[in-house]
Design a protein around this nucleic acid. Structure first.
Lengths: 208, 208
DNA sequence: AATCAGTTTGACCGATCGATCAAATCGCAC
DNA sequence: GTGCGATTTGATCGATCGGTCAAACTGATT
């Protein structure tokens, strides 16, 4: 490995640590509540050192947010890899719930931004319009073909999002409802099974 | 009206203004992000004046939070005023959605606290255990009597909470999904109808 | 008019905020 | 080991943070 590559590698590692620290801090405190001091500490840096790698807190926040939604962009829309509504819906829900349980902080950061009125996000989410409409079109096709019961395609997408996201955003409450301690894992399969059944039944796809 | 009563009335008004201001500020910025300066301004007070009526920011936060959950305590559990599951579920959802759309900031403040890991709330929500268990028992009764399909009583409660709460916590995203401007009202009836149908179908109560 | 509890105000406290700077330090090529 | 670009550091900036205080003000009672 050349010296130059080593440098790049080092920098990348630090930027990764900063991103992780930013996600943690912004997710639990929000943009205004987060402090650069705390982000630096989480990343194992001093405050001036952090500012050597980033310019401002606001920019770090925006970049972190954009990184997240770019990672999500195609993953979390109903995708027509299969033509079978049952398969498409089941896989969407399973993927989304696994992500929510594995990366709750990422979900919470997103939730926090939306709760603030999405001042940063709304400048970028026009790009998501297409995904929403494509999914709605897909569902309308299923309805016309008699494959699923009539549902509001937009509200149905939102409802799936709401329930799956809930297991990250409200993790503390989920643990309370399921009578779990902070160190006990949440039963992923139990939740995926139940939520999947909920939405399949809601559009007449469950035979139980 | 006596002079003494006038004084009490005045104080009460100010305390109400502070509570409203606190809800707004804490809901959009969180505990750490909120500033007493901003809360005072929202309430039409100076900062020292605010501290004449409250002691610390943390205490104001806790009191505001407790006021909210006390207001909710019995309202937002499945209550057995009727024996008919369809009625009980429909009314719960309608009430919850109307509240979410009318008082989104209140919902968001609660959401923010839970997202932080509920450090304050968890000291008080053992009182909610009973409500959760009572609702679960109610649903188990329905299932045994063959009135509804088998569902997980705890997850079913959470899912209803998740979807209804979503319309407050994610209001900005809801507006995006439904292609609404900030000044356009959200169609309450459309949402209540759809969400109700979702959950009634999920437990086999919808005949459409 | 004098009194006095209740309230409001401006000045101010130490601490921390986000951010900057010059100086010190580092790693590596030569 | 000298030089040089990349990085790290301690000191420090002005602003704001949560909170306090004595002094001024208010309005009703006497």
């Amino acid at each position: 490995m050349t010296a130059n590559a080593k440098l790049l590698d080092r920098r990348q590692k630090i930027h990764l640590a900063i991103r992780d620290a930013a996600i943690e801090e912004f997710a639990s405190k929000g943009l205004d509540g987060a402090s650069t001091q705390a982000i630096a500490r989480r990343a194992g840096l001093s405050k001036p050192q952090l500012h050597y790698y980033i310019s401002t807190k606001e920019e770090l926040y925006e970049k972190t947010l954009l990184f997240i939604i770019n990672e999500w962009s195609d993953q979390f829309f109903l995708s027509s890899v299969s033509d079978d509504p049952k398969t498409v819906i089941s896989e969407y829900i399973a993927t989304k719930i696994r992500h929510a349980l594995a990366q709750p902080q990422v979900c919470r950061l997103f939730a926090n931004e939306v709760a603030r009125g999405a001042p940063i996000l709304r400048r970028h989410w026009s790009a998501s319009r297409e995904g929403v409409e494509r999914a709605a079109e897909l569902m309308r096709g299923w309805i016309e073909a008699g494959k699923i019961k009539a549902v509001d395609p937009y509200l149905f997408q939102m409802e799936m999002w709401a329930v799956t996201q809930h297991f990250a955003d409200y993790e503390a409450q989920v643990r309370f409802m399921l009578d779990l301690d902070d160190d006990q894992p949440i039963d992923e399969e139990r939740i995926i099974t139940d939520v999947t059944a909920l939405f399949l039944r809601a559009c007449g796809l469950d035979n139980s």
